[in-house]
Amino acid sequence: MIVPRYTREIPQRYRLEAGKCKKCGYLAFPPRVVCPECGNRRFVTVRLKPAGTILTYTVIHVAEDNFAAETPFAVGVVETDDGARLTAQIVDCKPEEIEIGKRVNLILRRIRKEGHAGILQYGYKAVLQR
């Protein structure tokens, strides 16, 4: 039963809430209690810009059982326009359309299902800007 920890991550998964270091401006996504850049412990909550650039990616052909029905699917590292980095699936395109440096929007999609009877889990995915 993953409901408690799923619920805890909702601000990040649904609306890209990050912590911005009050001292050096580092964007922590997900939020952290201490800044890895300057050691400061005070952050302000901000929402990341839902657009960014693909830094690297792969197309997964062999997945864990939870994702087996969805293969092949693409996953990439995206840098948002405000400089935070995250891992997300890249969807709604053919794998050969994906390239490092291409622009994407981050949108809400269903990420996984907790079996047949458990909860549906939602979060950000990337779609190519067209």
Binding site: A63, I100, I111
Partner: peptide, 24 residues
């Protein structure tokens, strides 16, 4: 777990992304 595996990334997938970056 919450920010990589949650999205379906596998270990080969992570190293594949390193490989893609290295190739690039």
């Amino acid at each position: 777990q919450e920010y990589e595996a949650f999205h379906g990334v596998t270990f080969p997938g992570l190293y594949a992304m390193i490989a893609r970056a290295h190739i690039h």
